[in-house]
Design a protein around this nucleic acid. Sequence first.
DNA 1: GTCTATAATTTGATAGAC
DNA 2: GTCTATCAAATTATAGAC
Lengths: 179, 179
Amino acid sequence: MAQETINQILDAAEDKARTGGYNAFSFREIAKDIGIKSASIHYHFPTKADLAAQLARRYTEKFHTHLLSISESGNDLHQQLSDYANLFYQALRTDQKMCLCGLFAAEMNVLPDDVKKETRLFFETNLQWLETLLNSHEIDNPKNEALKLLAKMEGAMLMAKAFESEDYFQEAIDLSQYK
Amino acid sequence: MAQETINQILDAAEDKARTGGYNAFSFREIAKDIGIKSASIHYHFPTKADLAAQLARRYTEKFHTHLLSISESGNDLHQQLSDYANLFYQALRTDQKMCLCGLFAAEMNVLPDDVKKETRLFFETNLQWLETLLNSHEIDNPKNEALKLLAKMEGAMLMAKAFESEDYFQEAIDLSQYK
DNA sequence: GTCTATAATTTGATAGAC
DNA sequence: GTCTATCAAATTATAGAC
C-alpha cells in the first residue's frame, strides 16, 4: 500500500520537525528511520517544501478533527477550553515535543511559500474555532479573545520547552476567567 | 580592534538566527556579510556552539540592561509592564524578527548544551525581574503571574510571526488587568 | 515504487603561511 | 588576526535500472 509508506514518511518527518524545525529533518534521516532509501521519498514528495507543506496540512487536519470533537461534546465553555488546552498539553506530554506549527511559525521567514501558507492555516483554523466557541457563549470581543487564547497556548508551550518541563505549560495556562 | 570584529560577527549571526534559528546561520554566510573569511570566525569562536552560546548571552545581557532601566524609572506597575511589552514589540517592529531566545527555546531539543543553558538563562532573568516587580506591587502569586506574562509575550510574538504582521502582537497583549 | 549511483552545493572545522 | 587551501560529512535532488 502506497499510503502506508507516505504515512510512515510523514510520521518520521513530523517527529524530527517538531524537535528542531524545518532544518531538523532530512530525506536521508527519514529514509533510514523507516528502512527505505531517500530517493524513494522523492517519489512521494518531489521536494522538501512539498513534504513540509503536507506535514503542516496533515497536522492541521488532525488538530481540526479534535476541535470538532470538542465542539460536539456540548460541554460548557470552561470545559471546552480546558479540553482545548489539553490538546496542546498532550502533544507536549506524550511526545515531549513542541507544536509543529508553533515551531514553523517561529521560523516563518525561512519557510518555502507553500509551507508558510499551510502553517498560517493552522492558526486561522484555531482562531476560527475559538471565535465561534466564544461567540456562542456571548463573550465580548470573541475575535480578540480567541487571539489571546491561542497566543496563551503557544506561549505556554514555549515556556515548557524553555524550562524543559511540561509543568510550566499547566502553570502558564489559567482559564479561571471563563468559569 | 578585536572586539569590533567580534561584534560584527555577533550582529550578523543574530540577524540570521532570529530569522530561522540555530540552523539558519553559517560561518560562511556571516563571513561573507562582514567581508572576512569563515576561518577567521573560528579564531574568535572555535565552534558554532560557542558562537551561539555567546549570541544568547549577549542577547540576554542587553535585554537585562533594558529591564533595569525600566525598573529605575519608578513608574507605576501598568506603565512598567507596558514598557516591558514594548521591548518585545520593538524587536518585532524594527527588526521584523522573532525574539532570539524564543526561537531557540522552540528548538531546545537540538541545541548544544551551552546554548541551551544560555537560552534558559534569558527566561530565568525575565521571570526574576517580573516577579520582583509584581511582588513590589503586592500582586498575588507573583511567581505564577510572572510566568503567565512571559508566556504572553512570547506567545504574542509567535502570533505576529504566524500572521506576518506586528499588529497581532499588540492585539494579543492585554495588560488592562494591571491598571 | 524502490533501488543504485551520482551530481552539485553547503556545512563545520583544521593546518599552516603570513 | 586573517588568510588560502582543504577535508570529511551532509544536504537536496535527479537519472536510469529493476
